[in-house]
Amino acid sequence: MRYVQEFRQAAAVQAWVEAIAQRVTRPWTLMEVCGGQTHSIVRYGLDTLLPEGVTLLHGPGCPVCVTPGSVIDQAIAIAQDPQVIICSFGDMVRVPGERQQSLQQARAAGAQVQIVYSPLDAVAIAAKNPDRQVVFLAVGFETTAPATALAIAQAQQQQLTNFSVLLSHVRVAPAMTQLLADPDCRIQGFLAAGHVCTVAGLAEYPAIANRYHVPIAITGFEPVDILQGIYACLDQLESGRSEVVNCYGRAVQEAGNLAAQQWVERVFAIADQDWRSLGTIPEGGLEFQPEFKSFDAHCRFAITGAIALTSVNDCISGLVLQGQKQPCDCPAFGRTCTPEKPLGAPMVSSEGACAAYYRYRRTQVMN
Rank of each mutant, 00 (worst) to 15 (best):
S277Y: 15
L137E: 06
W275Q: 01
C87N: 13
Q253F: 04
T198H: 03
I218V: 15
C315D: 08
G285D: 09
T363S: 10
A251L: 07
Q324L: 09
N210F: 07
R211G: 10
L46E: 00
Q74Y: 03
E254Q: 13
E254Y: 07
P174I: 07
V224T: 13
Y44D: 15
R361K: 14
P174M: 10
F301H: 10
C330Q: 12
A192H: 13
L202K: 02
A126D: 02
T198K: 04
G334T: 06
V267R: 05
P63I: 07
P223M: 09
V135D: 01
P174D: 08
Q74P: 03
N246I: 00
G284F: 08
T280C: 12
Q133Y: 13
D274Q: 11
T363A: 12
P51A: 02
D73P: 00
A10W: 14
S277K: 12
E291V: 14
A251V: 14
S40D: 10
I208G: 07
P183E: 08
Y212L: 02
R266T: 14
V134C: 04
A232Y: 00
E254I: 03
G36P: 03
L46H: 00
R211L: 06
E340Q: 15
T38P: 02
H58P: 00
A12N: 15
G90V: 09
R107F: 03
V320Q: 06
R335N: 08
G323E: 04
V93D: 02
N313D: 12
C87W: 08
M366G: 02
V245T: 15
H58Y: 14
E32V: 01
I303R: 15
D182H: 13
P282M: 07
A75F: 03
D81G: 04
A11K: 14
A297M: 05
K128G: 06
D296Q: 10
Q159T: 11
V244A: 04
T67Y: 00
V95P: 02
A200C: 11
I281L: 09
V365Y: 06
V199T: 15
A21N: 15
G279W: 02
P215Y: 15
E18I: 06
P51C: 01
Q158M: 08
P96V: 06
Q37P: 01
T363P: 00
A232W: 00
L137H: 08
G61L: 08
V42A: 12
V267S: 07
I78T: 03
A111F: 01
P63R: 03
L120K: 15
A308W: 05
P327Q: 09
G189D: 06
V84H: 05
A297G: 11
L166T: 11
Q154M: 05
E222N: 12
H58A: 09
L278F: 04
V54K: 00
R335M: 05
E340A: 12
